[in-house]
């Protein structure tokens, strides 16, 4: 099997596993919706700057919760089994793709729920949507590798937060700026620099993940 077939099979396996239990997706969805409600109860109404920032913070914590599990569910025996049959690049790539899918579903539902509950006019809806999509892809890319590192480091949840926050902050700054531009309905060419930086960070992250995961994997 070449790498692409391996990736396809692994992603398929992840989706089937998830579909059987539906545990991760449902719990995360419940987490998002209840967080939105807590925020709504606390704030009632917010101005547009806080609306935007609050959305990204909710998404950030949801992403950390969703992604930190991605390597924990694999027992070391199963990892050993993968080690004998597939290449490490296929494993990390399949995790990234699967996490991206999950993140897209979660963030789209979160976006719908959030904007229904907190009413707020968005100037350029398609572009805001693009920000959400790009944001969830970037979160998935960065957190997949970090969760791999923190899974190897043992006690996960606190290590995960310590390791991932400084790394995710530049992305978050760019995303907030980009989505703020979209909200204000500015000229689209104003945000091209931000989109460029986002794409560049994503490409670099994927490249480094592919290069480094073989070392992380070998125990």
């Amino acid at each position: 099997m070449n790498v692409f077939q391996q990736v396809k099979t692994l992603v398929y396996k992840e989706i089937i596993l998830e579909w059987r239990s539906k545990y991760a997706l449902n719990s995360i969805l419940l987490y998002v919706v209840s967080t939105v409600f807590v925020c709504f109860q606390a704030f009632k109404s917010v101005d547009s700057v806080i609306w935007n920032v609050l959305f990204w913070i909710i998404l950030l914590f949801t992403a950390i919760n969703a992604m930190s599990r991605s390597f924990l569910q694999e027992s070391s025996n199963r990892q050993m089994y993968y080690y004998t049959i597939v290449s490490p690049q296929a494993v990390i790539l399949s995790k990234i793709i699967y996490n991206t899918l999950i993140m897209l579903i979660i963030s789209l539902i979160a976006f719908v729920v959030y904007s229904v509950i907190f009413k707020n006019p968005i100037g350029d809806l398609p572009f805001y949507f693009l920000a959400v999509v790009l944001g969830s892809i970037s979160f998935a890319n960065v957190f997949t590798m970090i969760s791999g590192i923190s899974a190897k480091a043992g006690n996960s949840s606190s290590i995960m937060a310590i390791l991932s926050f400084p790394v995710i902050i530049p992305l978050l700054i760019v995303l907030i700026k980009f989505s703020k531009n979209a909200m204000a309905g500015l000229e689209r060419s104003e945000s091209f620099a931000e989109i460029g930086v986002l794409l560049a960070i994503n490409i670099v992250t994927i490249a480094i993940s592919l290069l480094l995961f073989p070392y992380l994997w070998r125990d």
Binding site: I149, K152, V167, T205, L212, Y215, L216
Partner: peptide, 15 residues
Amino acid sequence: ISAIYNIFAFPIMIV
């Protein structure tokens, strides 16, 4: 593991 994190963090630091 710390070497992996170090390499991972460096380009982000540059950005």
